[in-house]
Write a protein that binds this DNA or RNA. Sequence first.
DNA 1: AGGTATTCACATGAAACTATTCTCTGAGTTAGG
DNA 2: TAACTCAGAGAATAGTTTCATGTGAATACCTGT
Length: 400
Amino acid sequence: MLRIGTFFENFLKKDSIFVEKSILLSAYMPNEIMYREDQIKEAANILAPALRLERPSNLFIYGKTGTGKTLSVKHIMNSMNSIAETNSIPMNMIYLNCKLKRVADTEYRLLSQLCKEFGRDVPSTGLPTDEIYSIFYTLLDAKKQVIVLILDEIDHLTKKIGDEILYNLTRINAELKNSQICIVGISNNLIFSENLDPRVKSSLSEEEIIFPPYNALQIQDILRKRTAKAFKENVVQMGVIEKCAAYAAREHGDIRRAIDLLRVSGELAERSGSLVVTVANLDEAERKVESDKIISAAIGQPKQFQTVLYAILLLFPQKKHFFTGEIYEIYKTICTKNNFNVLTQRRISDILAELDMLGIINAKIISKGRYGRTREISLSLEETITIKLREVLEKSLRVS
DNA sequence: AGGTATTCACATGAAACTATTCTCTGAGTTAGG
DNA sequence: TAACTCAGAGAATAGTTTCATGTGAATACCTGT
């Protein structure tokens, strides 16, 4: 008790190398967005008519992860919403992230979330979907107003439940008497719209804006700006920012990743009692971020996913590549030994495909000619991560 | 040698089924007047 | 009689099974030289 107390006291006394760590968290909203002036201006031009209660064109925004899409759109949203409020214009922009589980990832939940935005609480389940639709209609049409609906990660939505809901939303305007609705879709999949119903595609992407990736120099600039605010002076050593930017630029210019890396480097440096952030800290952070990402992705999965992954990890020391059938055999023995119910190979095939998408494994479909067609699966993880991952899975599945 | 047909071992797709979660409804029950 | 309880119906959803169909290229099998 006493000892832990002194630990905390020491912790308090030790001065931090951070001034304001929250600046390096992904939730942080800078009030100035660098290198995105053009895109913001364009988007603002397209959306501005909403303030005059005219319906803006539907807008589609593309760009890879960490290119500032969400940030820019939220920026516009905040300023337009506050202008609307001060001038009491009946215009409202609503932001929804379609990826969030249990919030807006199905047709029903999306609509019920929208109803909640209008201040009407609806049950989270139990109602027929058309009833939710009609509630939404009446709420929307209750008074004259313009609604700008921002759907972030819209590709997740359509992948899961198809594009019918988008079609309905784009058509809704024809049936509304008082209100107008405009849809802003954000996607980090550049070819997303190609497998969309042509009707949806043409009406949804009346306007399009593309967010290009940041290049290494821009990332450096942004990092410097954030560093200046987040860290104390002269804490971050020469070369750290440059290398951090290089790492991120390699990963298609993902600024979020760069900022993450910088923060973790700082945390690692601080934890080791150092007063400066070195390149070595950065390298360590790179490894830690990578392994944390994989491990947390693995933990978040259902039991069967973990079992399949565990089967792969058991196979891994023996050889570099393996096929669906081999994994299925191991998986079956694990299940019977531990009294899990055994799923069909069909399902395992899907699970493997999903693990691949999560980036936990690498799967490639190859044909072995006479000997069939299958997934060739490999792990691209470092050994330390595999060991750690295995321990974690053993604990969570209670197997050995 | 060159061409084609087979064939393997899964992949991929669609539909249907199961279990769970949640609401609403209405019958039965209880407590108070 | 009003308030309360609780089982059952209806709906959405996640996870799965069943059945059906697709597929890329190494081999087997021809064919004609």
